[in-house]
Design a protein around this nucleic acid. Structure first.
Length: 572
RNA sequence: CGGGGCGUAGCGCAGCUUGGCUAGCGCACCUGCCUUGGGAGCAGGGGGUCGGAGGUUCGAAUCCUCUCGCCCCGACCA
């Protein structure tokens, strides 16, 4: 009898929880979400909370193994931190107050304020502050693969944005910027190796440090329509950045050198209305926006074909809001729609694209616009990049046409500097006996996002096509007739041979019709299928099929193990 | 948090506008026969009280009020 197989020493489809679905649950939108549900990888417990079923968990573990190997290779040490945190640590860095509803908060039985960790900078830094005394103990890199909790405003797209998720997070502690730079680079390089091993197409892009604070940050982005971010790419010079921070050069326009004149534009307020009315392209307009910043009102000028990039403006003037209609009237003396930059005393910021040229803009007089306004001649402004990059713009580095792609953020790296070490007093004594704060970096990767991105980038109409290194199994054997003796003998032989070579094998031993097994095998997406059918077996052959290409290779039984391994290894 | 959509069997849906028989269909599931190279066929069977609460009514899946949940767009996003 089939001792190995019947004895439970192998993974049998009939015994595993692999609840595949023929129909797509209606709540799923993203391709990866649909396929993870249909192929039996995950189930949803509630909004943003997912159960990883056996196949899904195997995938995460494959990814985590790669993470650990690459982390260890740069000298990072794995530790494990609590998920439940006392409020005080977060209060010391101020994030207890800065972060609002996104933090899960609770009290323990003694009414002590606690929170669930959304990240671990505070706790890691706390540890460093307790245990590291001397420059001799530095540098250190600590990492963990640990659950994070965030009360997301809008969980979405399956496991891409959830309220509870696992993250590989690491933290570096150095005596100086030079050390940080080195660890930052080590992480960037390790991340490249990790994502490559996981079979992803990805870019490293400049990013916004956001609430992490700190000066420099990069994100690792896997292009996919399911992504929430947009990235700017230049094929020629390699410039890459998140649109949140990306610079770009708006398409150049010819200077039409109009004479300065007032034109009557009755009831034409928006750029589009005036543009249509005068039959002049929007790019020849100056859009004037009044915003209220903490320093007071600020007039912001962008070109008519641009959108204001609020984050860029925030970095210059701090938090702001657009002015109300009444405020526009009382501050500028004209109603919105006819504002121009001329003759105002307040601070004026303008997008750099407006530095040259001749434009149409509001006349500061109802129903009139000015044609022929020239920067520096008719108004003065501080020049900044204030627009959102978009398709049609050019690269800020080499002026080539840029591309914009949607992408999933699969990892990020931040230079934190002393943002956490100062408030938490993570200090050490240097060679001169001087007390100095540690220079820190933090580095994250979301394993579930890697899995989802891998599916987004590798699927076809039939299902998932796992990259080899993160597939839940290496090979799926499909005996078409489980009641046929020869089939089962060959099955056991192959199973033993492959397993002895370290190949992870799933056997579809269900008493199902061949069509069902083929459909499920394609859906589940294991890279290599070995089909045992009586047609081939009568010629002492089995079929080895590559999931990605559906290419089938017939081989003799005695060569099957060797061939399958070879086939597997030449598969991406 | 703003806008929109949806909650009827495990999944996908119909029924609701215009209240009225025992709440229906496909898939899945169970039993038997049969079948076995791309989600077979026949026969029989189990499972829902219509997201929840309240109300109107002789009578509510259907009408009204409140509430909970999920999805999508936006805001937000270590």
């Amino acid at each position: 009898m089939l001792y190995f197989i019947s004895g439970g020493y192998c993974m049998r489809f009939s015994r595993m929880l692999i609840p595949t679905m023929r129909e797509v649950p209606s709540e799923a939108e993203a391709v990866s979400h649909k396929l993870m549900l249909r192929a039996g990888y995950v189930r949803q417990l509630a909004a943003g909370l997912y159960i990883f079923l056996p196949l899904g968990w195997r995938v995460l573990n494959k990814i985590n193994r790669i993470l650990k190997e690459e982390m260890e290779s740069i000298g990072a040490q794995e530790i494990s931190m609590p998920i439940l945190h006392p409020a005080e640590v977060w209060q010391k860095t101020g994030r207890w107050y800065e972060i609002k509803d996104e933090m899960f908060r609770l009290k323990d039985r003694t009414e002590r304020d606690m929170c669930l960790g959304m990240t671990h900078e505070e706790i890691m830094t706390w540890l460093a502050s307790k245990e590291i005394r001397s420059y001799r103990h530095l540098p250190q890199i600590w990492y963990q693969i640990q659950t994070k909790l965030r009360d997301e405003a809008r969980p979405k797209s399956g496991v891409l944005r959830t309220r509870e998720f696992i993250m590989k997070d690491s933290y570096s502690f150095d005596i100086d910027e030079e050390g940080l730079e080195k660890n930052y680079k080590l992480h960037a390089d390790a991340y490249h190796r990790i994502f490559k091993r996981c079979g992803l197409r990805f870019y490293q892009v400049e990013s916004d440090p956001g609430m992490m604070g700190g000066a420099t940050a990069h994100e690792f982005m896997a292009p996919s329509p399911a992504g929430e971010d947009e990235i700017v790419l230049c094929d020629k010079c390699g410039y890459t950045a998140n649109v949140e921070v990306a610079h770009s050069v708006s398409p150049a326009i010819e200077d039409l050198a109009w004479e300065y004149e007032e034109v009557h534009t009755p009831q034409k307020r928006t750029v589009k209305e005036v543009s249509d009315f005068l039959n002049i392209e929007p790019a020849y307009f100056i859009k004037s926006l009044l915003v209220m910043a903490s320093e007071g009102p600020v007039l912001v000028l962008i070109r008519g074909d641009q959108e204001l990039h609020e984050k860029k403006l925030t970095r210059i003037v701090g938090p702001f809001r657009t002015a109300l209609k009444d405020e526009v009237l009382s501050i500028l003396g004209v109603e919105a729609g006819f504002i121009g930059p001329m003759g105002h005393k307040m601070r004026i910021l303008a997008d750099s694209s407006l530095k040259e040229g001749t434009y149409v803009t509001g006349a500061n007089k109802v129903d009139f616009h000015i044609k022929g306004a020239k920067p520096d001649t008719h108004f003065k402004a501080e020049w900044h990049d204030l627009h959102i990059s978009k398709a049609g713009d050019h690269c800020p580095e080499c002026n080539t046409l840029i591309k914009i792609e949607k992408a999933i953020e699969i990892g990020n790296i931040f230079k934190l500097g002393t943002k956490y070490s100062m408030p938490l007093k993570a200090v050490f004594l240097d060679k001169e006996g001087q007390e100095r704060p540690m220079i820190m970096g933090s580095y994250g990767i979301g394993p579930a996002r890697i899995a989802a991105a891998a599916i987004e980038q590798n699927n076809d109409k039939d299902g998932i096509i796992w990259p080899r290194n993160i597939a839940p199994f290496d090979v799926e054997i499909i005996p078409l007739s489980i009641n046929d003796n020869k089939t089962m003998e060959v099955l056991e032989m192959l199973y033993k041979g492959l397993t002895d070579s370290g190949i992870a094998v799933l056997i579809d031993d269900r008493d199902e019709r061949p069509g069902v097994k083929f459909k499920d095998a394609d859906l589940v997406g294991i890279p290599i299928q070995i089909i045992l059918g009586e047609k081939s077996l009568k010629d002492d052959q089995v079929e080895i099929k590559r999931r990605r290409t559906k290419e089938i290779r017939k081989v003799f039984i005695e060569n099957a193990v060797k061939e399958a391994i070879a086939f597997s290894q030449e598969t991406e």
